[in-house]
Write a protein that binds this DNA or RNA. Structure first.
Lengths: 321, 321
DNA sequence: TGCCGACGTTGAAGCGCTTCGACGGATGAA
DNA sequence: TTCATCCGTCGAAGCGCTTCAACGTCGGCA
């Protein structure tokens, strides 16, 4: 393994000079820098595990805890775009799937940058994130600006768009079938904000509304609950990728036709193309996050928030009340 | 961040004793060891980046170069199962998507174990793999036993099964639409072995056979080539996830009915359920690889080869010649 | 000509960890 | 009681790297 001293010897300077030349943390004359860079390249030098961080490790960590209620395929779609984008910037990707993903990175974390997904309104990972002192981007929007750039679909607007669409079709009672309770309990931003937009807009339009957190396995129970509810909802918004298809099946089995008897509107990544939906652009979010993370190197650290506007596509599963 | 000295102080011993107690590299009295372990647990101690490797980093690296001709969704399916299985063993996953993925790991690589995918018959990564001195598993079977456990679909048998199936249906001329030329050039094991099985079995049954490496974008050109070929193939085996659907479309546009005019048999991960196929069990391979990697810790390092038998499902796209 | 400041570079210290060599107390034999 | 042995523990050195403080050298200004 080639060490910094090897490079130093070859370039005729001291190891510390090599360190400074490669990190740019101190001014180094152009000539010396060039010699160092050349020596490093010739020897194929690659910084090893020194104490405080491995220099530029070219690794992008994604804190994507696989908790209950998380739809794996959606996560993988995001991951795929992250991997692709990271690769374009010559980075590999470390998937931290544990609840305490960030804590598993030792103090001097061997990663260059961090992408945090499945963000909660008061996400406990944020404090730890700050202590890592690495560039970071959140995919999701906490309740309070975290001092870190955020990217997300505008879920509040998505909830609003869904209700508006249904109200325009003449529906007077709407339901929201959301992710399982635990997702709400941990205050997942996407779920909470969608409910906010959904409920507020329903109230504004004087629609009756109800919210039903649901396990994907409980599609039948949910279908029954929707049928029994009074006032009976004539439209249901489904924000739960894993639940959508089972729910449609359960509804059909109960003799309900979509959209004649019940309109169904999905919010998710993985929506069949026969179902009207606000599609969550997981791939776009991932790519955007990586761009923000790896490009804004040069420039102000701009902790800005980017909310993508929701796009509602009518595809036949929603109709007049 | 909690350091080894913190643990040492709490346990009332010296840092080196903690190191020995936790690594087991020297005999430590049961009492002391217990106190150390307890202190470590209470403080949530997690070894940080010492010099020679980070101890048990709980990271599993996947060397999955994203090269030309690689079907990303298939790769992600595999990744998904790897992530899931790794998580069950309390590991995170580092995706090395660069050509020289293994080289990017510094000498004392911060990973516990390695999974190598998209293996070539003479894969140049193998030598580097050995020098890393980490447990490793190959998903794919090189030409010569590499001294490392291998897991793969039995692609030779898959090629054989496809031709057998078609021969039984009475076909006398069969074609193989494979991945792009570059995939063959780098001697990707799955592609080479399938061709082997395909060609040998066709010869054995005295069927005319031809092989057509193809870019997914060249579906139309390929369709024309198949139509013009003499003897005209009455069946085509497609080992190219990204090509399959475009090719079916191109065939349909040329007025060919499947399976009446041409039988289509796919080999891949991502096959629509209307197409007869030998399904590549990416998810199963990933999970199996991880099991082998993280379970065989306790036991002999058994460099064995596991070849999964191909399963051919008839689903309507293959018929009598 | 002499002084001062700036710049580029260096040596040394220190990061948290492992590991070698050595110490010291307990134990068994003489 | 004395001595040899051994086990468990410790101190110190060293891993490759960063970073601080200091050093020499140069150019500019008086």
């Amino acid at each position: 393994m080639v060490r910094i001293t090897d490079v130093a010897r070859r370039a005729g300077v001291s190891p510390s000079t090599v360190s400074y030349a490669l990190s740019g943390k101190r001014p180094i004359s152009a000539a010396t820098r060039r010699r160092v860079e050349e020596a490093a390249r010739e020897l194929g030098y690659r910084p090893q595990s020194g104490a405080p961080g491995l220099g530029s490790s070219k690794v992008l960590a994604v804190a994507a805890p696989l908790r209950g209620g998380v739809h794996l395929p959606a996560m993988m779609r995001l991951t795929q775009s992250v991997v692709t984008a990271a690769r374009a910037h010559d980075h590999d990707v470390l998937l931290l799937t544990h609840e305490d993903g960030l804590n598993r990175l030792g103090g001097p974390a061997p990663v260059d940058a961090l992408l945090v997904v499945d963000v909660g309104l008061r996400d406990p990972r944020l404090s730890r994130l700050r202590s890592l002192r690495r560039p970071a981007v959140l995919i999701g929007l906490p309740a309070h600006p975290p001092g870190v750039p955020c990217v997300d679909l505008d879920y509040r607007a998505a909830g609003e768009a869904c209700v508006r669409h249904l109200a325009r079709l003449g529906h007077r009672a709407v339901a929201l079938a959301g992710p399982p309770p635990e997702v709400y309990l941990r205050e997942t931003a996407s779920a909470r904000r969608l409910v906010e937009g959904f409920t507020a807009t329903a109230d504004g339009h004087r629609l009756a509304s109800s919210v039903h957190p649901a396990e994907p396995s409980a599609a039948h129970a949910l279908a029954d609950r929707l049928l029994r509810a009074r006032p009976a909802p004539t439209a249901v918004v489904v924000q739960n990728d894993a639940l959508l298809v089972p729910l449609l099946t359960a509804l059909r089995q109960r003799g309900l036709r979509v959209p004649q008897d019940l309109s169904v509107l999905a919010v998710g990544t993985d929506v069949p193309d026969t179902v009207s939906a606000v599609t969550v652009p997981s791939a776009e979010l991932g790519a955007l996050g990586v761009e923000l993370l790896l490009c804004e190197r040069t420039g102000p650290p701009g902790p800005e928030t980017t909310l993508l506007p929701p796009q509602l596509s009518e595809r036949g599963s929603t109709g007049p009340a």
